[in-house]
Design a protein around this nucleic acid. Structure first.
Lengths: 343, 343
DNA sequence: TTTCAACACGAAATCGGTTTCGTAAACGCT
DNA sequence: AGCGTTTACGAAACCGATTTCGTGTTGAAA
C-alpha cells in the first residue's frame, strides 16, 4: 500500500532540496556526479515517475488532443479515430475521446469540458442536432480562447478554422455517373435530410451527374430517411416504398452502407436480381459492404487517412507549424467495385 | 486574441484577493452579497472557467477514467466503449481511450502514461501479445501504486483485481449443444490460438458440449487461425482447408463473426447450402452477422452491458463503494437466432 | 593575500486554483 | 467603557513539479 512517491519524498529522504532532485533527474550539469548517481538510484528503486498533472500545469501543455465524435459504434468514425491515434502517438500526443451522441447539448458540454486546459487542441465532427439547429456559438468561444481545433467530416463552412472532409460531392458524382454510364434509366437516391451536410453534398453530386446526362432529378425516386432507429425497422419501411412499386428503379445510389444494404434486402425481397435488374452503390468504409451478399460496391471514404491528416493538421496548428491561414483539405473518394454493380 | 482569464486576473481587476474570488464563485457565506455579485458578474462577463488542470492537481482527482483496448476498429470493442462512456458520464467521469494495437509494448506504455496522475482508474482489455508472452508485471506496479483498475473481456486470472467477462465457455457450450441437438454429426470449430483466453474458453465450451453428447473432439475439424491479415486472405485460405474436403462438416462453431462469415463464404463456394447442408454459428455482437446472407446466428456478447458494468465496477472501486474484495462478474451470453441455422 | 570564476546546491517564484487560519472592523451586550 | 462575537476579507500553505536566481565554498590567477 505504499503511496506514490514524489520529488519531495526523495528530497527529504536524501537530505537535499527538491530543486536538486529535479535537476539531478534531468542530468543537469549543475549537480555533481555523485549526487546525481545517488538521487537517480533512489528514484529508480522506488519507481519514481513525475506526476503528469503537475507537469501539465507547469508547462501549460498537456500533450493530449481531444476528439468529439457523434458516435463511436460506427465503422467510419472508429477508423477515423484509429488514424487519429496513430498520427497523434507518432508525435507524442495522447487522445481523449468524447461522444456527443448526435446531441447538441452533449457536444457543447464536451467542448466546455475539454477546452479548459485538459487538452492542447480539439478534433470535432458535428452532431446531427448541431447541424440541424445551426447554432455554432460554442465554436466562437474556442476561437476567442485560442483553442486550436479542426473540424472533420461533418463540418460547417462558416466556422473559421481548419477543416478536412471527404470529397462527398465528387464521390457521389462518380457513383451516379457510373450507374448512368451503365445504362441505368432510373437512378434512385437514398439520402439523409438536408441539414446533414455530407448528405446534402452527396445529393449535389448525384444531381450534377444527372444533369451531365441531360436528366432532371425526379422527386419520386429520392427519399430522405428521417429517423435512424436502433433496429432499422423504420428505415427499412421507408426504403421499401421506393422498391415496392410497379416500376422500380434500376440503379440506386445510397449515401451510406446501411441504406444500401437495406435497399439490397428490399430489392431481393421484391425478387429483383442484383446487379442484373438493379445496380446498387453505397458510400462508406464499412464492413457490411464487404460481407453482404452480393457484396456492395461503395464509394470509399478513407476514414483512416482522414484521421491521420486531421491529427497532423491540428498538431501543426498547436505547434505553430503552419503558415497561419486556415486550410480545408479534401480527401478524394474513389469507387471500390464489388458484386452489386455490373462491370 | 484575448488569453484565458484566471482567478488572479479577476482579483487584480476588482482589487480583491484570489481567495475572495474563489470563495465568492463558490457562493461562500464568508463573502458579502455585494462583493459576490460584483465578482460573479465580472467572471460571467469574461466567461471565466476554472482551469481544470489546476483543479485536478489540487483535488488529486481527475474525474477521468482511462481505457486501454487492443483495437478500436472492432464492433465489439466499440460497443464496450460506448457502454463505458455512458456509465462514466452518468457518474460525472470522462473517458480517455488508448489503443494497444495488440502490442505488449504499447500496452505497457499506455499504462505508464495513464497511471501517473492522468486518470483516477483504468479499464483494460489485454493485448494478444501480452496474453501470448504472459508477462503481467506492469500490473503489479499498478497494484503497488494503488491505481484502481478493472480487467474486461481479455483478462488474466492471476492478476489480483476486479474483472468482468462474457460467459465465453457457457456461450460456446450453448452454441455447440444447439448444433448437436439439431443432429449435426460433424461439428467443426474455428478458433484462435490457445493463448487468447477468450478463444481458449470458447474451445472448452465446445469440448464440453461434445462430451455431453458422448463425443470426443476431432482434431481434423478444429482449426486455429494463426494470423489476422488485413484483407482476410490468409484466414480464408485456412478456413477453406476445413470446407474443401470430401466429407465436410455439417455444423460449424466459429469463435468470432469474421471466421463465421468467411466459413459461410467458403461453404457457399463449395456449393453447400446453408443451413440445409451446413449450419453455422458465430460469436460476437457484430454487424456482419446481421447483413450477411444468409444472416448469421451468433452468440451475442452484450458489449454495451460489459462496458457499463465495467465502468460501474471501476468507479465504485475509485469511490470506495465496494466491500473491499475483488469481484469477477460474468455476463451471460445467449444465442441470437438468424438464418444460418435451422429452427 | 586578494579576487574572481567555477562549482554545487538551496530558496523562492510559478503554473491556477482551494482552503485553513488569522485579523481588523463593526456590532451587541452588560 | 469594556469585552466578546460576528462579518468580511486577506495571507499563506498546498497540490507536484520546473526554473531562475542567489549564495557559500573552493580553487586558481594576479
Amino acid at each position: 500500500m505504499k503511496a506514490k512517491i514524489t520529488i519531495k519524498d526523495i528530497a527529504r529522504e536524501l537530505g537535499v532540496s527538491t530543486s536538486t532532485v529535479s535537476k539531478a533527474l534531468k542530468d543537469s550539469h549543475e549537480i555533481s556526479e555523485s549526487t546525481k548517481a545517488k538521487i537517480k538510484a533512489f528514484a529508480d528503486f522506488y519507481h519514481y515517475k513525475p506526476n503528469s498533472l503537475a507537469l501539465k500545469l507547469r508547462n501549460q501543455k498537456t500533450m493530449v488532443i481531444g476528439v468529439i465524435i457523434p458516435e463511436i459504434v460506427h465503422h467510419f468514425f472508429s477508423r477515423v479515430i484509429s488514424g487519429i491515434e496513430k498520427a497523434a502517438n507518432l508525435r507524442g500526443y495522447n487522445v481523449m475521446i468524447c461522444v456527443s451522441n448526435e446531441s447538441y447539448d452533449k457536444e457543447l458540454l464536451n467542448i466546455e469540458m475539454l477546452a479548459n486546459g485538459s487538452v492542447d487542441g480539439l478534433l470535432i465532427s458535428l452532431s446531427k442536432e448541431t447541424q440541424k439547429i445551426k447554432d455554432f456559438s460554442h465554436f466562437n468561444e474556442l476561437i476567442e480562447n485560442n483553442v486550436p481545433f479542426v473540424l472533420f467530416d461533418r463540418i460547417e463552412e462558416s466556422i473559421n478554422c481548419d477543416k478536412i472532409i471527404v470529397d462527398d460531392e465528387g464521390g457521389a458524382y462518380k457513383a451516379t455517373k457510373y450507374l448512368l454510364e451503365k445504362k441505368c434509366i432510373k437512378v434512385a437516391l437514398i439520402t439523409t435530410p438536408d441539414y446533414v451536410t455530407v448528405g446534402k453534398l452527396r445529393n449535389n453530386g448525384y444531381v450534377k451527374a444527372l444533369n451531365k446526362f441531360g436528366l432532371e432529378k425526379d422527386p419520386s425516386v429520392i427519399i430522405k430517411i428521417e429517423k435512424d432507429d436502433e433496429d432499422h425497422e423504420g428505415i427499412y419501411n421507408q426504403i421499401k416504398k421506393l422498391i415496392f412499386v410497379k416500376n422500380p428503379p434500376d440503379g440506386i445510389f445510397a449515401v451510406n452502407e446501411l441504406y444500401a444494404a437495406l435497399a439490397m434486402k428490399a430489392a431481393k425481397e421484391r425478387g429483383l436480381k442484383i446487379p442484373q435488374d438493379i445496380e446498387i452503390i453505397g458510400f462508406t468504409d464499412g464492413i457490411i459492404s464487404e460481407f453482404s451478399s452480393p457484396s456492395l460496391t461503395t464509394v470509399v471514404q478513407h476514414g483512416f487517412t482522414m484521421g491521420t491528416n486531421a491529427a497532423e493538421m491540428l498538431i501543426n496548428r498547436i505547434e505553430n507549424k503552419t503558415d497561419g491561414d486556415f486550410q480545408t483539405e479534401v480527401i478524394s473518394a474513389n469507387i471500390k467495385f464489388r458484386e452489386s454493380t455490373l462491370n
